[in-house]
Simulated scan of single mutants.
Amino acid sequence: MELTRREFLQYTAVTAAGAMLAGVPFLKGAEAAAKEEKTMEFVENLEVPYSTGRSVPTIAMPENACDCAHHIYDPVRFPYKPSDTRNQPPAGVDVYRLLQKKLGMTRSVVIQPSAYGTDNRCLIDALEQLGENSRGVAVVEDSVTDEELERLHHAGVRGLRYNVSRGATLEAGKVLRMGERIKGFGNWHLDFWVPADIVIGYREMFEKLAVPCVFDHRGHLPQAQGIRHPAFSMITDLMKEGKAWVKLSALYHDSNLEHDYADTVAIGKAYVEAAHERVLWGTDWPHPSEFSAKRDFPDDAHLLDLLAIQAPDEKVRHQILVENPEALFGFNR
Rank of each mutant, 00 (worst) to 15 (best):
L248T: 04
L248C: 13
S249M: 06
S249H: 05
S249K: 05
S249R: 04
A250F: 07
A250P: 07
A250K: 05
L251Y: 15
L251R: 05
L251E: 01
Y252R: 04
Y252K: 04
Y252G: 05
H253A: 13
D254N: 15
D254L: 08
D254S: 14
D254Q: 15
S255W: 06
S255D: 13
N256W: 06
N256I: 05
L257T: 14
L257G: 10
E258R: 11
E258A: 10
H259W: 08
D260V: 08
D260I: 06
Y261S: 09
A262K: 14
A262E: 15
A262F: 13
T264S: 13
T264H: 08
V265C: 14
V265S: 09
A266C: 10
I267P: 03
I267E: 05
K269P: 02
K269T: 12
A270N: 12
V272R: 08
V272F: 10
V272D: 08
A274V: 10
A275V: 06
A275I: 07
H276K: 07
E277N: 15
E277W: 06
E277K: 09
E277V: 01
E277G: 10
R278K: 14
R278Q: 13
V279S: 06
V279F: 04
V279M: 07
V279K: 08
V279I: 15
L280I: 03
W281I: 07
G282I: 02
G282T: 00
G282F: 01
G282N: 03
T283G: 00
T283P: 01
D284N: 11
D284T: 00
W285I: 02
P286R: 01
H287A: 04
P288N: 04
S289V: 08
S289A: 12
E290T: 07
E290I: 03
E290W: 01
F291G: 04
F291S: 00
F291M: 06
S292H: 11
S292D: 13
S292K: 14
A293R: 15
K294G: 00
D296I: 04
D296G: 13
P298S: 02
P298L: 00
D300P: 00
D300W: 04
A301V: 04
H302N: 12
H302Y: 10
H302G: 01
L303W: 06
L303F: 08
L303H: 12
L303D: 10
L304Y: 03
L304I: 09
L304Q: 09
L304E: 07
D305T: 13
L306N: 12
L306K: 15
L307T: 13
L307Y: 11
